[in-house]
Write a protein that binds this DNA or RNA. Structure first.
Lengths: 64, 64
DNA sequence: TCTCAATGTAAAGCTTGCTTTACATTTGAA
DNA sequence: TTCAAATGTAAAGCAAGCTTTACATTGAGA
């Protein structure tokens, strides 16, 4: 699963820590998701999409 | 997190077992998701949306 | 009514998402 | 150049997603 978080984060001028605070996860979680270490849970994906005012489909690219 | 899986499954004439096979999870997983026992992972949500040809946002309603 | 498919549910166990703590590396602004 | 903020990473531990096995309940058609 790929994602556009790093780019969007830059567009919105947010640090990993800022974003983490906004969606109430740890900074390490944001880092891990950006780095592709693991996929977020569905609730976390919804909160991320809400911050960037986009759909989950625009934020994440599913790869079988 | 609420979801419309049960309705859509009826519309598409699929049993829980059918749907489970389609997205390669166990029947119990489908049952648990329908019953709200837990939220699916993001990959599982993507596969569910693909079966019903809808978006994740149409399939799941996030509740903080 | 009988019966078989579909659904509900439970327990044990594995994997993954996420946390906290902690430290190293990179980067950019003064 | 230096120093602080931002990022990267790692380990241990808890919580959630999912599996397998197994059995009970519901429901609809013969």
């Amino acid at each position: 699963m790929k994602n556009n978080i790093k780019n969007l984060r830059a567009t919105f001028n947010l640090t990993q820590g800022d974003l983490a605070n906004r969606i109430e996860v740890s900074r390490q979680t944001i880092n891990a998701i950006e780095k592709g270490k693991f996929d977020p849970s569905l609730p976390t994906a919804f909160r991320l999409a809400a911050v960037f005012r986009c759909t989950i489909e625009e934020l994440f690219v599913y790869e079988p």
